[in-house]
């Protein structure tokens, strides 16, 4: 595997099967992060057209309008990415900057269950999942309402 191409290695680094839930959340965090970056770039290109004058801006909006319901669905996915990446990012801040939710150094007791992947971490992850899913569904109702899908 060490000799594989970068793409193959990238994919395998994002494959959390056989691993812990934190690694699933790592995968999601990376993917949502990349989606958000792509969106931000696209968004910057979009609003760049404002500086080119009203006709250019109108043409951009018309182009987006041609996407139809895809635009709403896309926005909904972006919203999901924002919610997840933001909430999970808060957890990672607690972990990495404040050293919280990790447990203290301790005397190991068999069978070993690492405290950094312990109860606090699980509670945080499942809370994030629940809250993000809730908000996302609500956002879905809001964003997709006009489409007649919901």
């Amino acid at each position: 595997m060490a000799n594989d191409s970068i793409w193959k290695r990238l994919i395998s680094s994002l494959d959390p099967r056989h691993y812990n839930i934190e690694r699933w959340s790592y995968t999601l965090h990376r993917i949502t992060g990349v989606v958000l970056i792509l969106f931000l770039i696209a968004h910057m290109v979009e609003i760049f057209h404002i500086s080119l004058g009203p006709e250019s801006w109108a043409a951009t909006l018309a182009l987006l309008g041609r996407l139809g319901p895809l635009e709403n669905i896309g926005l909904w996915i972006i919203a999901g990415c924002v919610f997840y990446h933001g909430a999970n990012g808060l957890r990672l801040l607690l972990n990495q900057v404040f050293g919280l939710l990790l447990g203290k150094p301790r005397m190991p007791v068999y069978p070993y269950t690492p405290t950094s992947l312990g109860k606090n971490q699980r509670i945080a992850i499942w809370t994030i999942t629940a809250v993000v899913s809730g908000i996302w569904i609500w956002a879905g109702l809001y964003i997709l309402a006009g489409l007649g899908i919901v």
């Binding site: 990790l102 190991p108 070993y112």
Partner: peptide
């Protein structure tokens, strides 16, 4: 980026993920 896989597979409860996050705090 704290995937925690290291601590998950460690056979001896070294918990490298914990060590690394705590060290980030020290570095800050």
């Amino acid at each position: 980026h704290f995937a925690g896989a290291c601590s998950y597979v460690c056979p001896k409860d070294v918990d490298p993920a914990k060590a690394i996050q705590l060290m980030k705090k020290e570095l800050l």
